[in-house]
Design a protein around this nucleic acid. Structure first.
Lengths: 224, 224
DNA sequence: GGGATGGTTCGGGCCGCGCCGAACTTTTCC
DNA sequence: GGAAAAGTTCGGCGCGGCCCGAACCATCCC
């Protein structure tokens, strides 16, 4: 079996796909949580998780009687994003898309380790409008952007890392790009740490707190 | 079945994956060519092609008794690239990788509508070194680059298109990025039109002609 | 220790699907 | 018109894999 087909096969199953999409929130889930989420028996979940781990898409971490599982890394997340984005791009009738836009996840959510949804797109737009990120056919952080990153988030990009500072990630609800890469991750981490956003429910949805609304307005002029 | 799993399923089969990877050369193939290429009977190829077309990954064009088939567009190509790149990234033992590097495809080939392989990476490096493309955490064409595009290739980027001028595409033989997007396509089209490279065999491999060697050296200082 | 909970292993059932060959249709060429 | 070639449709075969329940193991808590 050629490697492409094999990798695709990992994601070509209802249950495994549900696992991976849930794990796009970047957190570690237990096997049982994923089983309930996908609506299968624990035994089934256990087997499918093993396959995903052996396939290199997930990593596990055992803690006592729990088996925690998370995406193997940004590359794996990017692959799943790419597939999900293409799939929703090529399918999804209009009416469904409309109703999706009204959900909590569409307003604001995490996408692996960065922010997405209407919030994510608004933040991306704001950073481009303020000249912190340039969108000259491909995204790039400007010098002003680097300063802002250090001042507002306390983030300095280590030289020589493989991960790009900023990467565009197509938003499957908004159909517009938001910011991924190290910048996106730093922004999301800060937002969670300083309680600008709070997770709601067990999924990927987040909610902007009053403090967060203030912060986003002050730092980037985003009104949400 | 969730859309992600469905799309993945299209590529989760030996035969269909072989079709798609062959079609990454950007050309239109007949059903029979693909059948021989993948080592299946025409009847099988016919059925699988229908599935890929209904799934939106391919488009067809009938001409007489021939059924020509090609990738549906840059998005589809990008998806297949992403999967192929990840698959070879996560698998592929060292020895295999070594022998792959010596093949004709590794030296120079097309990747959907742009140039890849050692040639593609060399061209990308040269354009970055000459300041035509900036690699400041994300790729972007510089003003000098736009001038060069107009002068050397006669290409002017239409405003308001959805397709990015330049996009990074991870090379699965070199493990380094080469240039995709409209710029990559324009460069590849020019190279083929002006006989800088010539296709060899039925696959994606190309060969740099003497004229091409001259042109690449003159325009970008690339010695190949 | 004993009960409850999370997770795994194993056997078995079942459905899907990828493949082929044979028969058929359509187009091309002589 | 007739033969050859490209492609399609259909019936059928067989494998793979997805799922479950039952039994079992490991951990945690009282």
């Amino acid at each position: 079996m050629p490697p492409l087909a094999e990798t695709a096969g990992l994601l070509a199953d209802r249950t495994r796909a549900a696992f991976c999409q849930a794990l796009l929130d970047g957190r570690a889930w237990t096997a049982g949580e994923l089983a309930r989420h996908a609506g299968v028996r624990p035994s089934t979940a256990s087997e499918q998780l093993t396959r995903l781990i052996e396939g290199g898409l997930l990593t596990e971490e055992r803690q006592g009687r729990h088996r925690y599982v998370r995406l193997a890394g940004p590359e794996a997340a990017a692959l799943i994003e790419a597939l999900a984005s293409y799939a929703s791009y090529s399918s999804s009738p209009r009416s469904l898309r409309q109703s999706v836009r009204l959900s909590a996840e569409a307003k604001a959510r995490t996408c692996y380790d960065h922010l997405a949804g209407q919030l994510g797109v608004a933040l991306a737009d704001a950073m481009i409008a303020r000249g912190l990120v340039a969108d000259d056919s491909g995204l790039a952080v400007t010098p002003a952007g680097r300063t802002w990153l250090a001042d507002a988030l306390g983030y300095r990009h280590p030289a020589g890392t493989r991960r790009p500072l900023v990467r565009s990630c197509l938003d499957w609800t908004e159909r517009r790009p938001h910011l991924a890469g190290a910048l996106g991750a730093a922004l999301c981490a800060t937002a969670l740490a300083r309680q600008w956003v709070r997770r709601v429910g067990s999924g990927r949805a987040v909610k902007v707190t009053p403090v967060g609304g203030e912060a986003f307005r002050e730092l980037l002029g985003v009104r949400f």
